[in-house]
Design a protein around this nucleic acid. Structure first.
Length: 215
DNA sequence: CACCAGGAATGTA
DNA sequence: TACATTCATGGT
């Protein structure tokens, strides 16, 4: 378990203020092409499965490549966890080749699919407490903190703040913290904001939108 | 902490 | 055309 950390009110206010600024500048991510699907609400089970698939495919990869792969899966009627599980890895590998690491990612898709289906589907997993579900996701080969939290936040709609390279840069740009470890930054954002998954979804998307194309 | 797992788009000369 | 860099990372 992570240690409780107390952050200054000044820092917390800054984080809330930055959120309002980004929202004003870019508008709601639900209206952006890139994020309207992940930030959409409500979502069907089918859409949640797609998000889980995309969260694996997008690892270390450009989003355009992910879209292509998902299109291929859809055209082959294989864009579901059931389909992934009952289809040969080589077939999946070809369809997702645009994302790179296709051999690894095909296996990773299979690992998550196996987990979800053996757990009784998303419907059943939704009854699970967030911390328990997070631990289970992290125990799957090919799912680290960022991917686990992507799945928790965008597919399961749990208030878990996702930390990625953009968020680390964002924190560093605005001098929000002297540390930039995953756990520390996650605590920082979560303790500064209302525990609301919708805010976490939008904030993370806005950070990516704000910093995309910069360095 | 360093290294490796690729494919595709974009930038540079 | 050739080569470098970057991209919604995770495992060893």
């Amino acid at each position: 378990m992570s240690m409780a950390v107390d952050f200054s009110d000044r820092t917390k206010n800054k984080i809330r203020s930055l959120y309002r600024k980004l929202l004003k500048k870019h508008g709601s991510p639900s209206d952006s092409n890139q994020w309207k699907f992940w930030c959409k609400r409500p979502k069907t089970y089918y859409e949640k499965e797609i998000i889980i698939i995309e969260s694996i495919l997008t690892q270390r990869t450009n989003w355009k490549n992910v879209e292509r792969a998902v299109q291929n899966l859809k055209m082959s009627k294989l864009a579901s966890l059931q389909s992934v599980l009952k289809t040969n890895n080589e077939i999946i590998e070809k369809l997702i080749k645009s994302c790179g690491f296709s051999k690894q990612k095909a296996q990773r898709l299979r690992n998550v699919a196996k987990f979800v289906i053996e757990s009784g589907g998303i419907k059943n997993l939704e009854k699970m407490p967030t911390n328990v579900l997070r631990e289970k996701l992290l125990s799957i080969d090919g799912i680290g903190k960022e991917t686990a939290d992507d799945i928790l936040l965008y597919a399961f709609e749990r208030p878990v703040f996702v930390i990625d390279g953009y968020t680390k840069r964002f924190a560093s740009n605005h001098k929000l913290s002297d540390r930039n470890s995953y756990d520390f930054l996650q605590q920082l954002f979560e303790q500064s904001l209302k525990k609301d998954y919708k805010i976490y979804q939008d904030y993370h998307a806005l950070i990516v939108i704000e910093l995309k194309g910069t360095k």
